[in-house]
Simulated assay, not measured.
Amino acid sequence: MKLGLQLGYWGAQPPSGVAEMVAAAEDSGFDALFTAEAWGSDAFTPLAWWGRETSRLRLGTSIVQLSGRTPASIAMHALTLDHLSGGRVVLGLGVSGPQVVEGWYGQPFAKPLARTREVVDIVRQVLAREAPVASDGPHYPLPYTGPGSVGLGKPLRSIVHPLRADLPIWLGAEGPKNVAQTAEIADGWIPLFYSPASAPMYAEWLAEGFARPGARRSRDDFEIATSCTVAVTDDPAPVLAALKPDVALYMGGMGAKEVNFHKRVFERMGYADLADRVQEHYLAGRRDEAVALVPDELVDQLHIVGDAAKVRDRVAQWEAAGVTTLLLRLTSADEVRRVAEVVL
């Protein structure tokens, strides 16, 4: 099992203590450092800033939102940082949701699977640098010839020779079709709330993707990097309680009532009635009531909390369920070292 330090995205202010945590992760045998973005801080800048203090950690995004940049721009960010880091970038991409895509970026959300496929294709063309980049679209046509075009666009090839044509691309995916497509076209998968309990549900969707003609990977060389909390403690109750607001947020408060992809994850896991009630309270502003509905058993299923022996046993279960990397949200350098000591 590999460990990644998940810095996530910023809240109201930049987080503190990050430099110490990154140094501890580098020294303690962690495999990777990951950043994220929502509608505030971006993923690439903190990754470059903190990544410059490392020499061994892989540097990943989980996730870069597709609608925030054109495909060529995404590729430019990745190839630039890959050169600066000596070939350590993992490009994690995802579609986000309609509230963010249309409300923040001002882009259409329709056809997320087709848009994902086009973006990945264009990024791979840039990285391969075998020919000028061109795409028939319809979502990202290159060169652009639609409304407002002056008709002077032409296919271009990157000035910079990318360091790696096979820079790994991982996709964040939740639904059956998206997961199957991820297994078909990507090098890895960044699931949400994946655990041994839900692994059988996803196995069928992944197998469908791997079986498609031209699939890029097989199950043997495909990475699954899932975010969870690993807490080594003899008193799990307060840790589980502290994790409930995050579960309630994704279950009932993240996304619109009509379209909440995260809520659908819990519905597929068998928590449809609970998810409905949590969402009802959350969207009505009764967040404390929403959090109180989340059972300890569900939180324990989604995270790894317990004494050292239990943590090691649970990590082995997650590895047996196909997880190759645990992306961990930790709060201090001491916590980073403690988890590494127990798990690694």
Results as ranks from 00 to 15, higher is better:
267 E>P: 03
318 W>H: 08
75 A>R: 03
240 L>G: 02
250 Y>E: 07
130 E>S: 11
184 E>D: 11
330 L>A: 11
104 W>S: 09
36 A>E: 06
195 S>Y: 09
43 A>T: 03
203 A>H: 10
291 V>L: 08
198 S>V: 15
74 I>N: 01
229 T>I: 11
255 G>I: 09
28 S>F: 04
273 D>H: 08
320 A>L: 09
174 E>V: 12
181 Q>N: 05
296 D>Q: 07
37 E>L: 00
34 F>M: 10
215 A>Q: 09
114 A>F: 09
186 A>T: 08
71 P>F: 00
226 T>C: 12
141 P>A: 13
211 A>D: 10
168 P>M: 01
123 V>E: 04
3 L>Q: 07
8 G>N: 00
326 L>A: 07
258 E>W: 08
281 H>K: 12
79 L>G: 03
32 A>N: 05
322 G>H: 08
312 R>A: 09
35 T>Q: 05
83 H>V: 06
171 L>F: 09
132 P>H: 06
335 E>L: 02
204 E>A: 15
337 R>M: 06
322 G>N: 10
121 D>I: 06
104 W>K: 08
27 D>S: 12
164 R>H: 13
335 E>R: 01
70 T>H: 12
139 H>A: 12
36 A>D: 12
241 A>N: 14
181 Q>L: 13
246 D>H: 11
228 C>Y: 02
85 S>R: 01
